[in-house]
């Protein structure tokens, strides 16, 4: 009973946070809404007995990612977002339809069928297992992910920096 109530509260908070995050024009408000979403999500992970993932969610997302985003936004010029021009976005109606249709299609058959599949017993501690899996079985994908992050970082810098200016007489511009 308690679990059910907690689940619904957390999910409502998560959905509201996500909606606020995409709908606020003011970016700072948006990030705070996003943090709310992350927090609610970690609560959901706790309910699923995924202790490690919940901890990571709090440490990395609520802590590091959120703060970084705030930093980045504070350093840019247009925080309030009122004077930005919009890129053309049409077809919101179909988007909404899709957003409604997806959960209906996904959830309806199990709901109609009654009993959801019984979840297997949750392991006591997931951190050790995750660690050994990542370091043994999934070590190559892990490396690929590392490369992905490197690429994303390099790309972000390259795009943010813009083209190199080569003034005559200097080898490397600052």
């Amino acid at each position: 009973m308690i679990e059910g109530v907690a689940f619904y509260i957390l999910s409502t908070v998560a959905v509201l946070g996500a909606l606020l995050a995409v709908s606020r024009r003011n970016l700072v408000h948006g990030v705070f809404a996003l943090l709310l979403f992350f927090a609610a999500l970690s609560g959901l992970f706790v309910m699923l007995m995924a202790d490690y993932v919940a901890a990571v969610q709090v440490l990395v997302y609520v802590g590091a990612v959120g703060i970084l985003q705030l930093f980045a936004i504070m350093l840019t010029e247009h925080v309030t977002g009122d004077d930005l021009r919009r890129l053309g976005a049409r077809g919101w109606f179909w988007g909404l339809m899709l957003a409604v249709a997806l959960p209906v299609v996904l959830l309806l058959p199990p709901l109609l069928n009654g009993e959801p599949p019984v979840p297997p017993a949750a392991p006591q501690s997931t951190a050790r297992q995750l660690g050994s899996q990542l370091m043994e079985h999934y070590v190559v994908p892990l490396e690929v992910l590392a490369l992905l992050l490197t690429g994303a970082l390099i790309g972000a810098v390259a795009v943010a920096h813009g083209p190199e200016k080569d003034p005559p007489g200097k080898d490397r511009p600052a």
């Binding site: 994908p141 690929v144 992910l145 992905l148």
Partner: peptide, 16 residues
């Protein structure tokens, strides 16, 4: 897993 990380590596590179 390999499917997902490789697809993501491709996609992230192309984002940039």
């Amino acid at each position: 897993i390999t499917l997902f990380v490789s697809i993501e590596l491709i996609t992230v590179s192309f984002y940039v």
